[in-house]
């Protein structure tokens, strides 16, 4: 809001200055200008903000109430106090999906970050054909998730899939992948990482290119080796980019839905059921929108807490 209004403020203020005669008039005029700026600023953000208010903010606020009710999407929600929350505490399927979401995030976030960063550093160097490799790395991100998930499901096929054919060269009993409770989640994580690495690589690459070359030259003169230059020049200079990447990656990981929906539909059993899919199931398969809101509030709280911790950590580092 401020950003939109600011350039106008300065130009208007300058115009005002040239006409100004007396001090009193200036105050009145300045007030008028600031009102006009406020009005213009609000007009500028109105299209976006109105959409946000009706389509996101309104429903989100309503969610806080609906989470304490019983509601089938017809008629009015019936207030049931803490009933949904007691049910939540005893709901083993909810807890399974809660831990599955954590499992997914805890493995997926560092894995994606490390690979994306490594690729970005590699493709930032003067490598032959780096444009080609950048495109290749970004490619998975622009494929349709449903098509990609379907192809991966076939690759993971325990009997005739190429992955297990390859593994059979080394071990006699390769995993059952999507048909086993232990290996279904790793399979999902592999696909998710494959898909998202390219996107985060591009973000990190952009960050890398803003680091001035002089810093590296200075470090080199001071006798820093490659590893030291990476830790003491690259990483600190990249902190704003890294912070952005980690926050979006974290929120994206906690909200994962599309991939498990297409690849495993939460199965076998509940082994890849994540919170977002549980919300979807309770709401749309069971028409239990009250309880679905309760579960989604938990998801909301988890995302919020983790992000706040990241902000706090980042600010502490920045000071």
């Amino acid at each position: 809001m401020g950003e939109v209004a600011e350039p106008k403020t300065s130009s208007n203020a300058r115009n005002g200055n040239s006409h100004r005669k007396s001090g009193d008039g200036a105050v009145v005029e300045a007030k008028a200008i600031s009102r006009r700026n406020l009005r213009n600023g609000l007009l500028f953000i109105a299209p976006n903000f109105l959409g946000f208010m009706f389509l996101i903010l309104g429903p989100v606020i309503a969610l806080f109430y609906i989470a304490f009710t019983r509601w089938s999407a017809f008629g009015d929600p019936k207030f049931t106090g803490t009933h949904n929350w007691v049910r939540l505490a005893h709901d083993k399927i909810f807890w399974a999906s809660f831990w599955n979401t954590f499992y997914y995030s805890v493995v997926h976030i560092p894995l994606t970050l490390i690979i994306a960063f490594a690729l970005a550093v590699l493709l930032n160097s003067k490598l032959k054909g780096r444009t080609f490799f950048r495109t290749v790395a970004f490619f998975p991100y622009i494929t349709s998730i449903v098509a990609a998930a379907q192809v991966w499901s076939m690759l993971f096929d325990p009997k005739s899939g190429p992955i297990n054919m390859f593994l059979r060269l080394f071990i006699s009993n390769p995993p059952n992948w999507l048909g086993s409770t232990a290996w279904a989640m790793p399979a999902v994580i592999i696909v998710a990482t494959w898909r998202e690495v390219g996107y985060y690589m591009i973000l990190l690459l952009a960050g890398l290119q803003t680091i001035p070359g002089e810093l590296y030259e200075a470090a080199q003169l001071d006798g820093a080796n490659g590893w030291q230059r990476f830790w003491h020049v690259t990483v600190p200079s990249m902190r704003p980019t890294l912070f952005f990447v980690i926050v979006t990656l974290t929120i994206g990981s906690f909200k994962i839905l599309d991939l498990t929906l297409v690849m495993t539909d939460g199965g076998p059993g509940t082994s890849t059921l994540v919170l977002a899919q549980y919300v979807y199931r309770v709401a749309f398969d069971r028409s239990d929108f009250g309880y679905a809101s309760t579960v989604s509030l938990v998801l909301f709280a988890v995302c919020m807490v983790v992000t706040l911790i990241q902000f706090w950590y980042n600010n502490r580092k920045a000071d």
Binding site: S180, G267, P268, S271
Partner: peptide, 20 residues
């Protein structure tokens, strides 16, 4: 019904994949 049906769907995949 919808809730029972939904839970039994997970049971179906657990049993048919022979993970349980």
């Amino acid at each position: 019904t919808d809730t029972i049906q939904n839970v039994l769907k997970d049971t179906h995949s657990s049993i048919m994949t022979e993970t349980k």
